[in-house]
Amino acid sequence: MATHWSQQLHTLLKQQNIRQVSFVPDAGHTALIKLCEADDAMRAVRLTTEEEGVALAVGAWLGGDKSVLLMQSSGVGNCINMLSMLSVCQIPLTMLVTMRGDWAEFNPWQVPMGRATQPVLEEMGVLVSRADREDEIVPLAEGALRIAYNTLRPAAVLIGQRLLGAKTFDQ
């Protein structure tokens, strides 16, 4: 099932002429990352921390490339200060964020950032939408890409943990 929406997202990124896809790996993004890495029309950039992806997007846009940042919700916390640049300079970026710390979370240390993800993004000027059903992901991602690049601002789609399946550590 997971492969299905990842393939649709990959097709969408190609249609929207996304040239740079940066990421810190996350289980929910595994299939999409593999598809982007195998695609010669895209540059897949592995990051050491998510804020690099925000800065990368600024450089990419200065150079005429559209980019997307893939991360887990805990990575949103790593991006806060760097997001300032997107609003000050009116630079577009779409972020696809797989959630931790919401539905059926197993790890208590994930919950604070999971709860804060959406308000933190919104406080920093990011337009946020949230997919809790599989059939919502691609339409919401398309909407985020279009509003980001048509109106020169950052947009994020949160992909809920109920949809992804909560990590259980085999418990």
Partner: peptide, 17 residues
């Protein structure tokens, strides 16, 4: 602003051009 981001920004630009 964006302290800590200059190198990653240069990378995005270098890959684009």
């Amino acid at each position: 602003g964006g302290m800590g981001g200059a190198v990653a920004m240069g990378l995005g630009l270098a890959l684009a051009q």
